[in-house]
Simulated scan of single mutants.
Amino acid sequence: MTHRIILFRGMNTGGVRAPVGEQRKMAEAMGLKNPRTLAASGNLVVESGKAAEALEAAMEKTFGLKVAAMVRTPDQWAKLIAANPFPKEAASHPAKVIAMVMKEEIKDGAVEACRALAEGGEAVEAVDGVLYFWFPNGQGESGIFKKATPRMLGMGTGRNWNTVLKLAEMASAA
């Protein structure tokens, strides 16, 4: 069975809510096998593949939410982990390293724009269509985080390194 890691953008933040139990029921109703959620933040791992558009349509039909879904295979996720340009930071402060998985391409000039907003040692790198952020003072205090928008970066959703690793573990479990 092929696993899929599904990330919903903006779930359970800013008033966009869909209970994880209901997300699992929705996935089962779509025919997705063994749906598992991680935390209440729009993470879903299933044992079958569906197009992101089908998941987005199901979220809108089930919850009335228009949210973007990013779908990745375990191999794609392993490459995302291996490509992390901040491995030392991720090992010592995993909650302060963010991988932003993009729906489509990173916008031209996004990295440069983020670097111009960076404060206090913050860093950003783009590797294989993923934006990686290092927020030494935390994301909530970040100059980048406060001002960067999808219009500047492209449509994506970020997960801290703890979540990235937990999703990899979930997708590798039978």
Rank of each mutant, 00 (worst) to 15 (best):
T2R: 13
T2W: 05
H3F: 08
H3A: 15
F8C: 12
R9W: 06
G10M: 00
G10D: 02
M11G: 03
M11A: 11
T13D: 04
T13H: 05
T13A: 12
G15Q: 08
V16I: 01
V16H: 03
G21R: 15
Q23I: 15
K25V: 06
M26V: 08
A27G: 01
E28F: 05
A29N: 11
A29D: 08
G31P: 07
K33V: 14
K33D: 15
K33N: 13
K33W: 10
N34Q: 15
P35D: 05
T37F: 01
T37P: 02
A39T: 12
A39Q: 15
G42C: 01
V46R: 06
G49D: 06
K50H: 10
A51E: 12
A51R: 12
A51D: 13
A52P: 09
A52C: 12
A52D: 12
L55S: 05
L55G: 03
E56A: 09
A58H: 01
A58E: 03
M59D: 13
T62R: 14
G64D: 15
G64P: 14
V67D: 07
V67F: 01
A68C: 05
V71E: 01
V71I: 03
D75L: 02
Q76S: 07
W77M: 04
W77L: 07
W77H: 01
A78I: 13
K79G: 06
L80I: 14
I81P: 10
A82Q: 09
A83F: 09
A83W: 04
N84S: 08
N84M: 07
A91V: 06
A91N: 05
A91W: 03
P94H: 04
A95H: 09
I98R: 04
A99Q: 08
M100R: 00
M100T: 10
K103L: 15
E104N: 14
E105Y: 03
E105W: 04
I106F: 07
I106E: 10
K107V: 02
A110V: 08
A110D: 14
A110N: 14
E112F: 00
R115W: 04
A116I: 00
L117H: 04
A118N: 02
A118K: 05
G120Q: 12
G121T: 15
E122C: 09
A123V: 10
A123E: 13
E125L: 04
A126P: 01
A126D: 03
V127K: 01
V127L: 07
D128W: 00
G129S: 10
V130W: 02
F135L: 06
N137E: 15
Q139C: 06
Q139F: 05
S142W: 13
S142P: 14
F145S: 09
K146H: 07
T149H: 00
P150E: 13
P150C: 03
P150Y: 01
M152H: 09
L153Q: 11
G154F: 02
M155W: 11
M155N: 11
G158S: 11
G158M: 13
G158W: 06
R159T: 08
N160C: 11
W161C: 03
N162Y: 12
N162K: 13
L165D: 07
K166Y: 00
A168D: 01
E169T: 12
M170T: 03
A171Y: 02
S172G: 10
A174R: 15
